[in-house]
Amino acid sequence: MTDLADLKLSNAQIAWRAAQDIEDGAYVNLGIGFPEMVARFQPEGRQAIFHTENGVLDFGPAPEPGTEDWDLINAGKKAITLKPGTSFFHHADSFAMVRGGHLDVAILGAYEVAQNGDLANWSTGRGGIPAVGGAMDLVQSAKRIAVLTDHVTKNGDPKLVEKCSMPLTGVACVTRIYTSLAVVDVQDGHFVLREKVPGISMDDLQAVTGAPLHTEGEVGELTCPEDLE
């Protein structure tokens, strides 16, 4: 079997691929951490409006260190900046935007995604202190729920599974998964493979996926720029 480590995309490449699917003018919420990278890779000529659930819409990038204003932060509690068009709102309005279905896309990380779209990403269920934040609200309500993830865990176990073993964040909510090896849609209770990285066979990809990968027509080639930062 091919060594997956040589084939897999970097986190920046996964984020880049997800960014290619965001339309001009889309309202987008990016989860804390890895999904935040998506904002860097918006295609030329398209401008998404980013929502952060603590109460800011359409904000600018992180300020220079030393110039932070700690009243102006994102959901990850990192400093952000104003830009023409920024608006502020309180928490109930922020989650009216979320729950009311006004966001086009929410992009999150995952521990596990099941073939029916169930998502587990808030608690491993192995003790520790539970912390959910806004994830449960986001996954039930944005029009599209995209997950960015490594295709397998650090131990090499599949993260795309038949049924989640960890506590759920939401049921049947994920619509598309961007992994380090593939782009997979959740459709009618199963995984549909849309794209895979060059050099991996269907059998090898299936071997690291915990539920059957269906196909519809040709599977596209998942290629991304090499020099992303």
């Binding site: 659930e53 309180h90 928490h91 109930a92 922020s94 989650f95 979320v98 729950r99 169930d118 959910v132 934040g133 806004g134 994830a135 449960m136 609200d137 039930q140 309500s141 759920l168 939401g170 049921v171």
Partner: peptide, 26 residues
């Protein structure tokens, strides 16, 4: 969940004793 927390507080202030949300179902 964060949105449920905000809405529970909003409901408390608005005199709505309970409400239904999709958040957390299942």
């Amino acid at each position: 969940p964060q949105g449920t927390l905000a809405e529970r507080i909003r409901a408390g202030g608005a005199g709505i004793p309970a409400f239904y949300t999709p958040t957390g179902y299942g």
